[in-house]
Design a protein around this nucleic acid. Structure first.
Ligand SMILES: [Mn+2]
Ligand SMILES: [Mn+2]
Ligand SMILES: [Mn+2]
Ligand SMILES: [Mn+2]
Lengths: 230, 230
DNA sequence: AAAATAATTTAGTCATGGCTAAATTATTAG
DNA sequence: CTAATAATTTAGCCATGACTAAATTATTTT
């Protein structure tokens, strides 16, 4: 109970900075730097504001982002750690809200978006333990570990499957709750088994069988559903 | 499920304003206006900053506080409602942290102090329902009702009891967690039965019997323990 | 290779909510 | 009643993180 050798916890970045770092993490997961415009769109902020913030983050010591004018922005190791901290909070909170307060997966995002910045490390540890240290959140997104590393993602997009291939849905990357509710209707939720029965090379539509129902899905949907790698 | 006739929820006051209103509520519970200095101390802010904020709150339309120079400040009805909203959040959160995450009553305050500003009304409703719409928080403080009225407080301070009087502890108003832990040691927690076996008129010490143990308590403690009114 | 368009950055502004130092007003003591 | 002290307010400043408008740089088209 007594706290010996208490590390003088460094102050947490501001809410705004945490949100910037999180978005930069997400936008750079594909290996490409994040553009000013993309960040502005994701953060609901004007491009000029993004430039200002990026310059500040690059000037911090240690720098949180690497940046050269007109070249987009990437996270430094320090920035990545800070981003993973926020993402861990966010995904644990979403899981917690669904498990203990009966939120549905299309309702949790906004709540977590605000709570993620104010919970203590103690709170984080308590919900992680209470949930049994879950690996994925309600959408199937991987939860960064307590030591702030992101587990290896072994999933492949449904859009990469072809006729007669099948697998378990691991994750649904839906940007808005409307799509999430639609997918719930279709039964396309994590841990569900799915089978591709047809593929149309012209429009990339996939015909899939889920729970005895058949649906024809466009690329806009199939690219956002991730299947367990074989 | 469909939200008809959605009221265009007025934007919530800033975190700072919420904290000011809450402290003003607490400091004026005795009927007296709150002084600039007292507010500054409670809010960990300089008196000059308090004056600035108070003037802003008095200028809002509708005004949240009533204020005349050098006379201290009180809440208007609008300010009181806003204060009760924050207090309801705070006390429901403390209750919820204790009930569902195993926090002890001396650990919850700081966490609730930050969460109270960011939870949604939906979140508030969900935890209130999950807890069975509790009347009091872990310290025994009354929780404002959902329609934002404060229930009538029928308690009397332990310091008002005399030899051979007794009652149940309703509430412990302890400012710091050190005192809370001390009281836990002594068994002086809400819902505990307590009996006064002696009173010293010179130093106002009370001798009390709790759970077969006897303690001599000074006014500094007895004035902070509230007993169920007879 | 220009010209047109798109993306990004700069410059200047604003709101919020702190701060210090100095001035003012109230209260208390002699 | 006056002087000292305490409380409060004013004035001016700063950091944060938005914004708009204008300038600049990159990318596409013709
Ligand atoms: Mn957020
Ligand atoms: Mn954390
Ligand atoms: Mn607070
Ligand atoms: Mn509320």
């Amino acid at each position: 109970m007594a706290k010996l050798l208490e590390t003088p916890t460094p102050p947490r970045p501001s809410t705004s900075i945490q949100d910037y770092l999180k978005r930069i993490y997400e936008l750079t997961e594909n290996g490409q730097p994040a553009s000013t415009n993309d960040l502005a769109r994701e953060l609901n902020v004007k491009p000029a504001s993004v430039t200002g913030m990026i310059q500040k983050l690059a000037a911090e010591k240690p720098a949180l982002v690497a940046y050269q004018k007109h070249q987009g922005v990437t996270l430094t190791p320090a920035g990545k750690t800070a981003a993973l901290e926020v993402i861990r909070h966010h995904r644990l909170l979403e899981t917690w809200l669904v498990q203990t307060l009966g939120y549905s997966w299309d309702e949790v995002h906004e709540e977590a978006e605000r709570l993620e910045h104010v919970i203590s490390e103690d709170f984080e540890n308590r919900i992680a333990a209470a949930l049994g240290h879950p690996l994925r959140d309600p959408h199937g997104e991987l939860i960064p570990t307590a030591d702030l590393t992101m587990p290896l993602d072994e999933s492949i997009p449904l859009s990469a499957l072809r006729k007669d291939q099948s697998g378990k849905i691991l994750c649904v990357k839906a940007p808005d709750s409307g799509l999430l509710r639609h997918l719930t209707q279709l039964g396309l939720t994590p841990n569900t088994f799915i089978e591709v029965t047809d593929y149309s090379p012209y429009d990339h539509n996939l015909t899939v069988k889920v729970k005895d129902k058949t649906h024809v899905l466009g690329l806009n949907i199939t690219s956002k559903i991730l299947i367990e790698g074989k």
